[in-house]
Design a protein around this nucleic acid. Structure first.
Lengths: 366, 366
DNA sequence: TTGAAAGCGCTAACAG
DNA sequence: CTGTTAGCGCTTTCAA
């Protein structure tokens, strides 16, 4: 027959085939899940032996192991993780605490984290603070229980006190910071070279003739912002350019207001001839404000953003970015956490890993 | 003194202040967490009474409740979730299974899901399939245990068999699909109007004079792709345009190859005068290929993408998009799941919610 | 209003 | 090699 390649029919064929399959291989799943006890009774063994057989213990004969495994498969046995967690006092799960996820940095970081967690057979709980300190505290407080074995965190922009974190560490849970760290907490930190990359970005603008470089940021307390600000200031100083405090502008985390703030900045009498956005989400309002004020990029004003957006390549004009090693940072953070989880007495105190960012020079700052 | 406003010094002052604070409010946290037993012993009560007091049971006197709560706070008691899960046979956690997270749709959806989960006091486990069916199967299989109370899933692009999902449902766990569904599974589905929005997008191109409209997609088995394809075909048919099968191009999920595939498409003798990308990640290779082939958008070729990228506004030229209600879909999916979790005997079978997408017409298709 | 006891499902000593 | 026993921390009858 000819029509079997036609999409709709092909689909229909697949479905009937599936249904036929099911008739021969009926669903054995029962609402009440199989437990070790059931397996034990069925095989006339003790629960202990079954438990050991399932974990492939050396003190169980090959034959019983096979019998157990066979029945387990047949009855679709899946161990109850909470019973085992309760007993073993470890949960095989880690928590990832993030300000938000609608940001390419954090998305990529999650990918990195999840990839190593899946490798290690760990589960990943995700918590979003939405940049709220109160939520962060509430979330962290929960971790004093045994819900997770370790925590990966990038703090909220409101966070300027770290008691909630030191408390969790004191309760015996390893904590690894990534990207947004608390400087005063002694634990592993996976960061990028914020100061240096900001210095490079600023210097690049200066070398391309900019004198009035504005720096736009979103949080006074975030250490990464301060380090980037420091790099910016140092670059200006090193090139004998006076720092103009009114060109260092705080935006809010709320996106809608930023357009107006930036527009106002661009209407100043000492109008900046360059902008450095230290956060991804400032990019869109910047481009829009420049367009609406008919300030051509890079002609009238040059722009550099800290962002991991792939679309930077196809913006109008292509955006010069400081790209953070997001995936690698996530991966490294998880790797370091697992080191602490697997090796006893492994100290995270001195672990600080710096993975450099990359300055991608494109049209917007040329 | 004048220097207290200088950043570095201000920071140092903060630190010593914090340290001073700690000296007065020392950390009471002990490595061995407080349990109900400890509280009971300390107060000369039974564990049962303490448990009830903590859950604010009516059968406990006001005074004992207060005593218990006071001590619990003092000793920083946090209940062990796994003990309670084991006993109550519910975990207060849900699973979110996604193909990936580096896509603005899924990022936004997670935000929606997490916001309602946090409201309900639930925890969110995240799992990425990386578009692999085998991983999806392995992940779903785990859910037959009590690890989660319910599942939210957007299937991988490889998924063309749904046994792993029906098995989980058969094991008693509610499952809600969002966006990428399995049509043959009878459970709640939160989707958007893929067919209609694709129809609208295609019609828009036709109305703007396009005759050779190419459709680019990434998976043959995904129902959303098929529905979008259907909308595309229907629009062509309704406008008496012949469907050219060689303008319907399958890309791979791997990003690097797509640039070449698109370039090849754009070099055909019947070169398309418009492209519809049914996946966000195809946008960048399309723009790059057009740029490199000196095909101006929208002059020589018009482009529409299915994407939630905010940066669509500032691309060169601004991108016409079909924007899915990502946040709302995530939120709705979670809401429906919690309905099933909270109400007994609530059937998900008939729950299908369609939230329409929006066609944002911009320069790239004008 | 409080307490004793049983047990969720699994693991880990320790015996046999 | 296999089984017995004793919990992990919490909830929930049922009895006092």
């Amino acid at each position: 027959m000819m029509f079997i390649y036609e999409t709709v029919f092909a689909q229909k064929l697949t479905f009937t085939w599936l249904q036929a399959l099911k008739r021969f291989k009926p669903c054995h799943i029962n609402m009440s899940n199989t437990t070790i006890k059931i397996l034990a009774k069925e095989l006339n063994l003790s629960v202990a032996s079954v438990s050991k057989a399932l974990r492939d213990s050396h003190e169980i004969s090959k034959e019983t192991k096979e019998k157990v495994l066979a029945l387990a498969r047949k009855l679709n046995y899946v161990p109850n993780p909470y019973a085992s967690s309760l007993r073993k006092r470890k949960s095989k799960t880690i928590a990832v605490v993030l300000p938000e996820v609608a940001d390419s940095f954090f998305s990529l970081a999650i990918n990195g984290i999840e990839s190593v967690a899946q490798d290690k057979g760990y589960h990943v709980l995700i918590y979003l603070t939405h940049e709220s300190f109160a939520r962060e505290e509430a979330i962290l407080n929960e971790f004093k229980s045994g819900r997770v074995d370790g925590i990966l965190i990038s703090v909220s922009s409101e966070t300027n006190n770290s008691d909630h974190i030191t408390q969790v560490i004191a309760s015996g849970k390893p904590v690894v910071f990534f990207d947004r760290v608390c400087d005063d907490v002694e634990t592993a930190k996976i960061i990028t070279d914020d100061m240096e990359s900001s210095y490079k970005a600023t210097s690049h603008l200066i070398q391309n003739g900019c004198k009035n470089i504005a720096y736009i940021y979103t949080s006074r307390s975030l250490s990464i912002n301060n380090k980037r600000l420091e790099g910016y200031k140092k670059a200006l100083a090193d090139h004998d350019i006076t720092i103009q405090e009114d060109l260092i502008v705080l935006c809010d985390s709320n996106t809608t207001g930023n357009y107006d703030i930036i527009k106002k900045l661009l209407k100043k009498k000492n109008r900046p001839d360059a902008l450095i956005a230290c956060v991804e989400k400032l990019t869109t309002p910047i481009y829009l404000a420049c367009r609406d004020l008919k300030l051509s990029i890079p002609g009238k004003i040059k722009v550099i953003s800290f962002t991991n957006l792939q679309a930077a390549l196809i913006l109008s004009p292509a955006l010069t970015t400081v790209t953070q090693p997001a995936f690698e940072m996530g991966k490294m953070a998880a790797t370091v956490l697992f080191k602490a989880l697997e090796k006893k007495n492994y100290s995270l105190k001195k672990e600080t890993v710096i993975i450099p960012s990359v300055l991608n020079i494109r049209q917007s700052a040329t």
